[in-house]
Nucleic acid binder design. Structure first.
Lengths: 155, 155
DNA sequence: GAGCACCTTGCAGTTACTTTAAGGTCAAGA
DNA sequence: TCTTGACCTTAAAGTAACTGCAAGGTGCTC
């Protein structure tokens, strides 16, 4: 159980080192001890906390939700009811988003029907997309769950 | 068909004026004529183009995808095959994302079972989330479709 | 001419990171 | 011993698609 440098922890957790530093800056991970050469040195406590965070992130929780769970976890009197409420909220968000995406899927498939391949007088899809200049498309409801695309980074 | 100011167009399209300026800056809408007092003045061409963009956005396409469709639309030789390919890609992204969210939903519901309400020796959910410090959670596949939460703005 | 709604520009903030730049540390090889 | 290379450090900027704000100009009514 010799302490790990950030790279070793990163490799072990399959999590970029930059992300670990980022969590520290965000206050999700406490600042670890430093080596003589000012390297971060992590012990099992950090490892477990990082695992918790990554598990929550893999469940698509926001950092705010995770922060809240960590606070509840750090409190001596652990409050199950609050934990349950965070999780129930999140489950609802995911269910809502699935419903929205299913509606969207249907719309896209309908739209796809508008053009078989090479139409004689202009693409039916483009025509369909241009319709409704007078009736604007319905605004999607304000929600806690975002769209369909990830943050892309420059190649 | 008297030209519209940005506010009038915004109201008609149910789209914030700031967003219209943003689309112009992004090159999705061409710069409109200006009034004597330097106000933007929009005609039916702009209205229709904005409708196209908003329709695509309501289908959760990225601005890059929309940019591409607009280019195809602006070309005299409209290429249905390319349009179809953009749309097919997007449909795939949405289907993928739905699949992921369903898996996620199942995991969250399983997790929720771990704590009924007030557990005697510590919340079962927190314990479950802390598991797997040695086996890191599976990285979600790199994808074109992002997570569950929208960009939140300050209250 | 005062008030008010609307317009202008530019820039900072949002999420959860990722990338870059410019430099310091450490272990191994020549 | 020196140097090469992998690894570490920080701070700052970039990502998507906007939203919000500040400081000021315009246009219309009372």
């Amino acid at each position: 159980m010799t302490p790990l440098t950030i790279g070793a922890l990163a490799q072990r957790m399959q999590c970029p080192a930059e992300t670990i530093r980022f969590y520290e800056k965000e206050g999700l991970l406490p600042p670890p001890d430093r080596s003589g050469g000012n390297y971060r040195l992590y012990g099992p406590t950090h490892l477990e906390r990082l695992a918790f965070i990554r598990r929550c992130r893999s469940l698509d929780m926001t950092l705010d939700e995770i922060r809240l769970l960590l606070q509840l976890r750090d409190r001596p009197a652990e409050n199950c009811l609050e934990v349950n409420s965070v999780l129930d909220d999140h489950i609802r968000h995911v269910a809502d988003r699935i419903g929205e995406l299913r509606t969207l899927q249907q719309q896209l498939q309908d739209l796809r029907q508008a053009c078989a391949s090479a139409e004689p007088q202009g693409c039916g899809i483009l025509k369909e997309l241009a319709r409704g200049a007078d009736e604007p498309p319905p605004r999607r409801a304000a929600r806690h769950i975002h769209g369909s695309h990830p943050h892309r980074t420059r190649r």
